[in-house]
Amino acid sequence: MDVVEDFKYLLNSDISNLSKNKQIKYFEELETKINEVMDNKDIDLDIFEKLLNVKKQIMSKIYNLKR
């Protein structure tokens, strides 16, 4: 559960002072990190689902920045 809260904190961090490209890079690296945590065979599916919701938000941010 701490993992989920950590990623939520990183997702909602204020990075508006960064340029658009740097923001995209930030979220892409965050997505890579969350993928590493989720790619575990023994992960609890409830935690997996919570991480997936965070990942969806990250993907949405990247999509909107790239539009």
Binding site: E31, K41, I43, L45, K55, K56
Partner: peptide
């Protein structure tokens, strides 16, 4: 599929 895949494009183990 993107949601359920890792950075290399493979589906998560679970």
């Amino acid at each position: 599929k993107k949601e359920l895949s890792n950075s290399e494009g493979e589906i998560f183990e679970s």
